[in-house]
Amino acid sequence: MTGTVFDIKRFAIHDGPGIRTSVFLKGCPLRCEWCQNPEGIPLDPILWYFSSKCIKCGECVKNCPVDALTKGGQDPNYIEIDHDKCTLCGRCTDVCPTAALSITGEEKSTEWVASELLKDKVFYEKSGGGITLTGGDPLYQHEFSLSILKAIKEYDIHTAVETAMFGMEENLLKFVPFTDLFLVDFKILDNDKHKVYTGVENKLIKSNFERLSKKTENILVRVPLIPGYTATEENIINIRDYVYSIRADIRIELLNFNPLARDKYKILHKQYPTFQTNRSYSEEEMQSFNRFL
């Protein structure tokens, strides 16, 4: 079977135990304002541009059959992409000598993904690591995700799934026999705020979480700290109380904010939100957040 993958990162060390490889699967039902991989939200592939690699040769502009590219629009250092016009024909990526343009999100087979993941098997074995499905949200392409998990489990490798749990319960539970660790994202406990900031209510998320926690013990709740959104005392305490009310032995981890996604919003012609602060939290700040847990 096949699915859409937008990246595979080896030596991932913050997405579960040991040394891991993370597979980034496209598609996510949430629309978090702060999403750090916005290119992963839509299921469809999209033309992607790395300004730092571009030598401004203009070859791409010349070769685009539908005039989707312009040089020197608002920002003279950028090739602007009209994503509506672009047909993803791949002409520009072929002529671009520096690979500054690429189509992110490729159709890949389960076998291909598995063979990429197996390349670092020896590292997983030595470090107690394994593979992590992330995205986007692996629940979005749940059949494909499941096929990868099954393929990897054949080799007795540790598997983790990072999900916001917004999907059909039965699809989520299908992962359970093949998943050694669920990294579940909890962003905001207040339902109204959740709706405003992520585009969806969190009722489904909660009920899925409750069901999941009955089926497996291997859950780690992760709260991304977004300044002005999730990183408040109230929210952290609420999440804590809620999680512990479901099961007191579930671990909660706070993820530090990082402002690294700004460039991505520019390429997508999206507004990057203004955060209260534009840097990661210091160790001391992290400690004080952790005190709320």
Binding site: I13, H14, D15, Q36, N37, E162, N256, L260, D263
Partner: peptide
């Protein structure tokens, strides 16, 4: 000299980036 350092990876949870692919102000960060 980004070409010489393309391999510098920034490893943050769930994030995918190489140092040289970041915009300048983020690199500064």
């Amino acid at each position: 000299y980004p070409d010489k350092y393309k391999n510098l990876t920034i490893r943050v949870a769930g994030y995918t980036a190489y140092f040289t692919e970041l915009a300048k102000d983020l690199q500064n960060e």
